[in-house]
Design a protein around this nucleic acid. Structure first.
Lengths: 159, 159
DNA sequence: AATAGATATCTAGAAATCGAGATATTAGAT
DNA sequence: ATCTAATATCTCGATTTCTAGATATCTATT
């Protein structure tokens, strides 16, 4: 399969294209898998992080599920309505709201998580374990670098 | 920086998390950069692919911009309204609609693309060129494998 | 040529996500 | 103490994207 001349030569741009494609391909597994359980990816993300980390401020959940704060509010609202998540004001800092799983929420994520995890293990199974580990290292550098660059270029001028 | 025990041990799941984070971090550069020009990422994607590949059927554009067909229709509508893209029926196959840039569309993407490309090169600049090439290879394998697995598991039963 | 299945595009309505900004609170500097 | 900047959460309205399915056309098989 050929690449266009522009991209074949331009390694950084090619990397960006391939990153987007790989994410999309794996993400489709995630979406389909989670949809089986009547949840959206973001809803699942909230349940999952509370399951593994315990009670957390909204802002910390937000950082982990990779959406904007207003979207977080929206999803948490839905989960509260469905009785899977509970809000309570933080005693330490009156700006923050703490989130935790209800008994029902815990029951559900405990049942769902292992099944979904297995799906995702298969989704990335085209890479050998050794290459998976390599890729983790490379993507961590890439991701952290991109995040840092974005943060430092935001307050100042665009270009 | 530590990882939770569950993920630290579970290499495939960790890979999925890191992939999502890396994509998100780089994607923010893309979004911010493209927003400067008063376009959405998907709109930019359409202009870009028509710019580099010339006239194309809607379905081929769709595959490259990684959204569903109905979303493609939506974005193309907007670009046509703005006079940047033109539709015409394919003479060869009466199901397909061919898309191409108008003079105005070409003018805009010609001006925008180099600027955006440079932003994206910087966005992935945390990796050395050598590591960028390595990552491309690994992500290609990962992405193609995931796409194949998803395709073959879709028509049959979920699990 | 007739039918069944695949493909291409689009419609309609619902759902997810974003951006800007309001509000309250905390932290830091003077 | 006071003032300013930063942080946390939420509201509102607009935009984007999805899912499901309608329609038309094409392909392949019988």
């Amino acid at each position: 399969m050929k690449r266009s001349k522009a991209v074949r030569r331009d390694v950084p741009l090619h990397l960006w294209v391939v990153l987007a494609r790989a994410f999309d391909a794996v993400n489709r597994h995630s979406r389909t898998s989670i949809a089986r359980f009547g949840l959206g990816v973001t809803e699942f993300g909230v349940l999952e992080v509370l399951y593994h980390k315990g009670e957390l401020p909204v802002c910390q959940v937000q950082q982990r599920i990779l959406v904007e704060s207003s979207s977080t509010t929206y999803v948490v609202d839905k989960l509260c309505d469905r009785g899977l998540v509970r809000r309570r004001p933080s005693p330490a800092d009156r700006r923050v709201t703490l989130l935790s799983l209800t008994a029902e929420g815990r029951r559900i994520i405990e049942r769902i998580f292992p099944v979904h995890a297995e799906t995702m293990r298969r989704a990335v199974g085209a890479l050998l374990p050794r290459d998976q580990t390599r890729t983790i290292g490379l993507l961590r550098t890439l991701g952290l670098g991109a995040a840092r660059r974005h943060k430092t270029s935001e307050p100042t001028s665009p270009d």
